[in-house]
């Protein structure tokens, strides 16, 4: 029919996703900005001054990259999980399922929609951080690449969560019980150099730890992890999650009876 059908369909999904979180900005953009802003004030500014240095930097400088990353992770995830589940809940997902849009386009559309929100909040948080710390980005390429890849990983994870979710509880369980602990223990607030060997080892099993540290490396030029290894892990996660999503979509898990 139309040669660029797939592109038009993709664009349609992305625009609809962006319009959705734009329409409800009071729920999607403002709360994360406020939360992270409070972290800046309380941990960075008030408590941070007493902490002194962390990983060779002032505490404020140390946590800014971590907090930016935290906002990207949480918002990429939560945009996809709530949007996709809401389409499931309202049955409007059927519009897509009945249409000739291929699964990989459906998936990519939602992923890019989630990234858009993750990056929008990430940008807001970055701008806010300028009031608290002077950051000079050491390696722009690494900084941007790791944010994009991380955003993809968590958008994909949110998609899987939404596929399996049957109730609104199901879309808050994983963020609360899995995502948040992993983020908090992922080196956002401290350097693993502070930890005893055993916990240092455990931190190494947490993928978020690599993402946060690589991002911190891009901005500050220092990291607790091997950067190449971190990128490798990110890519492996993306491949595994993307493939799983496609398989689940093909099977119709949670979508077709």
């Amino acid at each position: 029919m139309f040669s660029n059908h797939k592109y038009i369909a993709f664009e349609t999904i992305v625009i609809r996703e962006i319009r959705r979180f734009g329409r409800i900005w009071l729920q999607t953009l403002v709360p994360p900005a406020i939360t992270i802003g409070l972290y800046f004030v309380i941990f960075g500014n008030l408590v941070g001054r007493r902490i002194g240095e962390m990983g060779g930097f002032q505490y404020m400088e140390f946590i800014v990259p971590g907090l930016i990353m935290m906002s990207v992770i949480q918002n990429s995830y939560s945009n996809v999980v709530s949007s996709f589940f809401s389409h499931k809940f309202q049955h409007s997902i059927e519009e897509l399922l009945v249409s000739p849009v291929p699964n990989y386009i459906i998936l990519s559309g939602f992923i890019v929609g989630g990234m858009a929100r993750g990056l929008a909040v990430g940008t807001i948080v970055t701008l806010m951080s300028l009031f608290f710390a002077d950051l000079e980005i050491q390696n722009l390429f690494i900084t941007i690449t790791v944010v994009l890849l991380t955003s993809i990983v968590f958008a994909l994870a949110g998609f899987i969560n939404a596929l399996f979710a049957n109730t609104f509880d199901d879309i808050s369980i994983i963020p609360t019980f899995v995502l948040t602990p992993l983020i908090y223990l992922g080196g956002v607030f401290y350097s693993v150099e502070l930890l005893p060997p055993f916990w240092k080892f455990v931190s190494g099993l947490n993928p978020i730890f690599y993402m946060v540290n690589t991002f911190r490396y891009g901005i500050l030029g220092t990291s607790d992890v091997n950067i190449v290894w971190a990128f490798f892990i990110l890519c492996v996660f993306i491949v595994i999650l993307f493939t799983s999503c496609l398989l689940l979509l093909r099977k119709g898990t949670g979508l077709r009876s």
Binding site: M1, F2, N4, H5, K6, I8, A9, E11, T12, I13, I15, R16, R19, R20, R23, S86, H87, Q90, H91, S92, E94, E95, L96, S99, P100, V101
Partner: peptide, 22 residues
């Protein structure tokens, strides 16, 4: 089975997009 929060025109336009209409 359309989204209750979207506008009438957006719903039809989105559908058109799914079918690749310019």
């Amino acid at each position: 089975n359309f989204s209750q929060f979207e506008k009438v025109r957006d719903i039809v336009m989105t559908q058109a997009g799914y079918y690749g209409l310019p």
